[in-house]
Computed example of a mutant assay.
Amino acid sequence: MAIAALSSGVTGLNAAERALGNSAHAIANIGTQGFQPSQAVFQESAPAGSGVSISIRGQELLQVEAPSATNLAVETTNSLVYKAQFDLSAKVIQAADQNLGTLIDIRA
């Protein structure tokens, strides 16, 4: 149980990190002509409860003379959500680590 929770927390950390990087990339390119931000899409891994996966969908740069399609308010909100997701995944790992340590101590 503790090892599954540890694995689930790690996949959550990785997904949050990739999503936060994607959001930072969109914010960094807010002044780039024709930039279209990508969207982070989260999906539960199979079997249920084993973690989360992420895919990044969308085009990054169109060959048009249009302003960037990045919405700063949306990307800022997304960044806060991804940071909270990262923090919660770290707490899952911490709890799993403590439980695993308790299991190992009991058996010793």
Rank of each mutant, 00 (worst) to 15 (best):
Q39S: 05
K91M: 15
I106R: 13
T102V: 06
L13R: 15
A15M: 05
G51P: 02
I104F: 13
G9D: 01
A16E: 05
A90Q: 12
F86E: 07
N22M: 00
D87H: 10
A40M: 05
A15C: 11
P37Q: 01
V52F: 12
F35P: 00
E65P: 00
V52G: 08
L13F: 11
L80G: 06
I3W: 14
R107K: 12
N22H: 05
L72E: 06
E44I: 12
L72G: 03
Q59R: 08
N71I: 05
G51D: 09
A19K: 03
F86I: 06
A108P: 01
Q98I: 14
L61R: 02
N78K: 14
G101I: 03
A73C: 04
G21E: 07
V64S: 00
Q63E: 07
N14T: 11
E75G: 06
T76H: 13
A90D: 05
L20V: 07
V81A: 09
A46N: 13
V74N: 09
G9P: 02
A73G: 04
T70R: 04
L103N: 10
I56H: 07
T11A: 13
Q94V: 03
L6S: 09
S38A: 07
I3F: 15
P47N: 09
A4N: 12
M1G: 10
A24Y: 09
Q85A: 14
K83S: 13
I56N: 01
S68D: 00
A66S: 10
N22D: 04
R57K: 14
I30W: 05
S79L: 10
N14I: 10
S55G: 08
P37Y: 03
